[in-house]
């Protein structure tokens, strides 16, 4: 090996070692001058190639090229490292206060009563119930007479009715008129429907009572439908709504369109039956009225009560939604105060 070759190899080792101590852009420039500048060994060797013996030229040429490539590769790596480090420093200066609030997108929400309705639709759909809707302005016949509440019957006192200026036309006081409407449409098929919708009663508007509210009614008609079927179906509904361990109780009640009639209570989901403000200390929440469809109603619907039987149940969803979200005023639902609606 020629002396010059050894010298060039040593220069590469020296250059890489020197580069290790370089950390700033300035010292990198100095390094470049030392090892790749005009007076560097590399450039001087190139300059003195002509003075070399003819047979030595290719050998030295190859060696100096290797040296140059080696130094340049080391330089490129170092430059990248220095750049990354300085960027990292810039990034650090850009650190955000991640606790500042995010920008709010405009978000639409479903109205809380519509949310409750959807939940009920889902639960009953799972049990094979279809949805049937009927008019909000009804005839006296459908709202009362066909439901076994003839004119002047004492049971009419149970509903504070809005009458229209048209004789025999009322604002429906319950979704029950839909019972007879769906029966007349589907007789003699089996029926398994829910009847949702707005109903209206002449009441004082207070935090607890509304003139307009949404009811959901259930109707099952078929052969061999019993009180026990009703109880089982409603228990399933209560468990789906209030949790697997929800306890229910049935107590006697009266509705002209069902017999026997019952009121179903569910154990208060707030206090678990110990008594609290939501259940007014009783441990129970009244959630729905129900009963076996009255033979007279079946007849009006076109079903022979000697052959068919059925059950019906009705619940007001405004009140259950109030309880569910601890809402203090039933009027919020229809006042549509944006501050209220935005919470859902």
């Amino acid at each position: 090996m020629l002396e010059i070759e050894e010298k060039l190899q040593a220069e590469l080792t020296r250059g890489i070692e020197a580069l290790q101590t370089v950390v700033t852009v300035e010292s990198l420039e100095a390094w470049k001058q030392d090892f790749l500048g005009k007076s560097s060994l590399v450039m001087q060797t190139y300059g003195s190639m002509g003075k070399l013996a003819k047979e030595e030229r290719p050998i030295v040429g190859k060696a100096v090229n290797q040296l140059k490539v080696g130094l340049e590769a080391a330089l490129a790596e170092k430059e990248e490292g220095i750049k990354t480090a300085s960027q990292q420093e810039t990034f650090t200066k850009e650190t955000l206060d991640v606790t500042l609030p995010g920008r709010k997108p405009r978000r639409g929400r479903i109205h809380p009563l519509h949310l409750t309705l959807r939940q009920i639709y889902q639960i009953f759909a799972d049990m094979g119930f279809q949805i049937y809707r009927s008019p909000e302005v009804e005839t006296d016949d459908y709202n009362f007479t066909f439901l076994n509440i003839p004119p002047y019957h004492p049971a009419r006192d149970m509903w504070d009715t809005f009458y229209t200026d048209k004789e025999g036309v009322v604002l429906r006081t319950h979704t029950s008129p839909g019972q007879v409407r769906v029966m007349r449409e589907r007789a003699p098929q089996n029926i398994r429907v829910i009847l949702p919708g707005t109903t209206m009663r002449y009441e004082q508007l207070t935090a607890r009572s509304e003139i307009e509210f949404i009811q959901v009614e259930l109707l099952v008609v078929g052969k061999g439908i019993t009180f026990a079927d009703m109880r089982g179906t409603l228990n399933d509904f209560a468990r789906r709504t209030f949790g697997e361990n929800a306890r229910t109780r049935l107590r006697p009640s009266f509705f002209p369109f069902t017999e026997p009639s019952a009121e179903m209570d569910v154990q208060c989901f707030v206090c678990g039956g110990e008594g609290c403000g939501v259940c007014k200390g009783t441990g129970w929440l009244e959630i729905l009225g129900c009963g076996m469809v009255h033979p007279t109603v079946l007849r009006y619907g076109g079903y022979d009560p000697g052959v068919y039987s059925g059950f019906a149940a009705g619940m007001g969803i405004d009140r259950s939604t109030l309880m569910r979200y601890h809402i203090d005023d039933i009027r919020h639902f229809r006042n549509n105060d944006i501050r209220f609606l935005e919470q859902f």
Binding site: V220, G232, N235, D236
Partner: peptide, 15 residues
């Protein structure tokens, strides 16, 4: 009423 046990509906589903 409390002594009447619940059952699940077992009649034929409507169309």
């Amino acid at each position: 009423y409390e002594r009447i046990a619940g059952k699940r509906l077992s009649d034929e589903l409507p169309p």
